[in-house]
Design a protein around this nucleic acid. Structure first.
Length: 597
RNA sequence: CGGGGCGUAGCUCAGCCUGGCAGAGCGCUGCGUUUGGGACGCAGAGGCCCGCGGUUCAAAUCCGCGCGCCCCGACCA
């Protein structure tokens, strides 16, 4: 492409709406344009990057045995009612009506559609296992779009779905996808870490997220500094700090006027936070059925984790109780006690509670607490589970190392769905023995634009983007200088432009009538991996200057006849650096971005 | 949905407090000079000052109601 004909301009100043480097650079370089909150147009440069990422995703999906399909974005609402997710998705689901007033939805994901497709076309065990995938636009009416391309309302997602006869088969399909994901992120130059994750509203058991670590991330990740355990904080296991041991003592009431927070309580009574029990109230809404009140109890040195709590209750939707609800359920804010919790309120205790004797807890009476409350002797919970959040400094459950926290963005997520959807939509195939078998599913999502964003986030400098060679909009950029004053040099530049393309390279030729500084700066900003400088001066010397964008090494002077081989050698070297080992090492070795938030 | 910030030229912003001709820099167009890291001169084009209503002789400016965008939180397969 000749830049004089290229659509889209760079901006000299940073647009103010962007607050992350990736968003700012993509806007400034003319890759994307915002149409409204969470909705972007892709200009030619951005679109080329998107297509490159999609190509890598396709290659790896195909290599892993996936078959590409195309599923509709426009879907009948009944499908969502059938799976029971219409309510669970809530306002995130874009809904509309056709001219006949039929309810429709724009697909936020495609489990329902693909399960239906499978049901219509797979009849026996001979049709399995099978993994279907697609690269499609998804629509989600996010409560708050943010972070440029990170959380948007319309985006490109690769989603894959595996169908197996049993869980061993599912494990195999899952592993194949897991490996494909590692290869995809490595090839795209995006350092990601697989972490244990909650499976959330999508359902199923066992899932991992591929996390790109960045301070701008919206997820909190827990890492072990000794072993390779890493998990989303929504899921992370940890060893509770030890309790203050002692034989159970007699309960006593103690007056604590105006003392409702743990911090005040410990000061007032002269005890440690881990010698107290903290009560937090939630309303839980199960997939089917009415909301019910939850009385969650964690030790005072820990924080209750809503997502873990929801998981412990079988995937109910959780929200904090309003003050009115607290009162209506007979709970005394600040002084609630698990002993004699009101009728109908479900008590859920964290693992830390049963093993910690003589805790201070509320007395269910304004202005009073109880000392020496002991689990089992004095009260018990309907459920005891891991419902507390791991914090920096906690002990790793696997190896005893110290846990640290970091921020990250989810690039992809792989789930073992099992039979959640095949059961909801009553899918069976005929087994070898003639009996009906309920297939077990996996699903595997990946955000294309998020990968693009993360690639910029991890490959840029003060001058602009330095794209990984695999997904750069062009392989090489030719900067022409003074060509309009030297006809011979111009003809040679045109010839080189043709030769590079004939050699299979994607070339951007800056033939604009601009000053050299403008062209060099634009080349740095756009971030094409290899830059050639062709000028009157170089032409007379029979050379071309070659500069690699990444690392900003000095330009080399290369004989005109050897330029193409030289460019290809650089390209191959850059591509070979994008392997799983090297890129994952980068992901693991970024202490600067592990914040103890 | 709660809290905060902001809407003026393609971009970055001033003007608003204290009402009186709609501005600057960059970018864009033309001409000339220039030409190896964001040149210079001259001449231009470009605006529903987010929208609606109100106050006023007069509103970008004051008041009210909306809408939009960004950030924090809630939420987030």
């Amino acid at each position: 492409m000749r830049m004089s004909r290229h659509f889209g301009h760079t901006l000299r100043e940073f647009p103010t709406e962007a607050d992350t480097p990736s968003h700012a650079l993509l806007l400034r370089g003319g890759f994307v344009d915002q149409l409204m909150a969470g909705v972007y147009s892709f200009l030619p440069l951005g679109n080329r990057v998107r297509l490159k990422i999609e190509r890598i995703v396709r290659e790896e999906m195909d290599r892993a045995g996936g078959q590409e399909v195309r599923l509709p974005a426009l879907q009948p609402i009944e499908l969502w009612e059938q799976s029971g997710r219409k309510a669970g998705m809530g306002d995130v689901l874009f809904q509309l009506r056709d001219r006949k007033e039929r309810g429709l939805a724009l697909g936020p994901t495609h489990e329902e559609v693909v399960t239906r497709l499978f049901k219509d076309h797979a009849q026996s065990y001979r049709d399995m296992p099978v993994t279907l995938y697609q690269i499609q636009t998804k629509f989600r009416d996010e409560a708050r779009p943010r972070g440029g391309l990170v959380r948007v309302r319309e985006f490109t997602m690769k989603d894959a779905y595996s169908f197996d006869l049993d869980d061993d088969g599912l494990d195999e399909s899952y592993r194949a996808m897991f490996q494909a994901y590692r290869r995809i992120f490595a090839r795209c130059g995006v350092p990601t870490l697989p972490v244990e994750a909650d499976s959330g509203a999508i359902g199923g058991k066992g899932s991992q997220e591929f996390i790109f670590l960045t301070e701008h991330g919206e997820d909190t990740i827990v890492f072990c500094d000794a072993c390779d355990y890493a998990a989303n904080t929504e899921k992370a296991e940890f060893v509770r700090p030890p309790a203050v041991e002692g034989d159970p003592l007699a309960i006593e009431e103690v007056e604590t006027p105006g003392i409702t927070a743990i911090g005040d309580l410990t000061t007032f009574l002269g005890v440690e936070a881990r010698q107290t029990a903290k009560a937090v109230f939630f309303m839980a809404t199960p997939g089917q059925g009415a909301p019910f009140p939850i009385f969650a109890v964690v030790r005072g040195d820990l924080e209750a984790n809503e997502v873990k709590l929801a998981a412990a209750l079988g995937g109910a939707e959780m929200r904090a109780m309003t003050d009115a609800e607290v009162e209506a359920h007979g709970l005394v804010a600040g002084y609630a006690s698990p002993i004699g919790a009101p009728e109908g309120v479900r008590v859920v205790a964290d693992l830390s509670i049963p093993r910690s004797p003589n805790l201070v807890a509320g007395a269910n009476r304004e202005g009073w607490h109880l000392r020496n409350v002991n689990y089992e002797r004095d009260w018990s919970a309907a459920t005891v589970a891991d419902i507390a959040t791991a914090q920096a400094g906690h002990e790793c459950a696997r190896c005893g190392g110290a846990l640290g926290l970091g921020r990250g963005i989810e690039m992809g997520h792989v789930f073992r769905l099992q039979q959640v959807y095949t059961a909801a939509m009553d899918v069976t195939v005929q087994g070898a023995d003639g009996e009906a078998v309920r297939p077990t599913m996996g699903c595997y999502g990946l955000g294309v634009e998020r990968v693009m964003s993360a690639a910029v986030e991890s490959h840029h400098d003060e001058a602009g983007i330095a794209w990984p060679a695999s997904i750069a909009p062009y392989d090489v950029i030719m900067v022409g200088i003074g060509l309009d004053r030297d006809e011979e040099a111009r003809q040679d530049a045109d010839a080189l432009y043709e030769e590079l393309q004939a050699a299979g390279l994607e070339v951007l030729f800056d033939d604009r009538d601009e000053r050299p500084g403008v062209k060099f700066n634009d080349a740095d900003l756009i971030g094409v991996p290899v830059r050639l400088t062709v000028s009157s001066r170089n032409h007379k010397a029979g050379v071309v200057e070659v500069k690699v964008r990444k690392g900003n090494a000095e330009a080399e002077t290369v004989a005109r006849a050897e330029v193409i081989a030289h460019v290809q050698a650089h390209r191959e070297r850059l591509l070979s650096a994008l392997n799983v080992d090297d890129v994952e090492r980068l992901a693991r070795n970024r202490p600067a971005e592990r914040t103890d938030a």
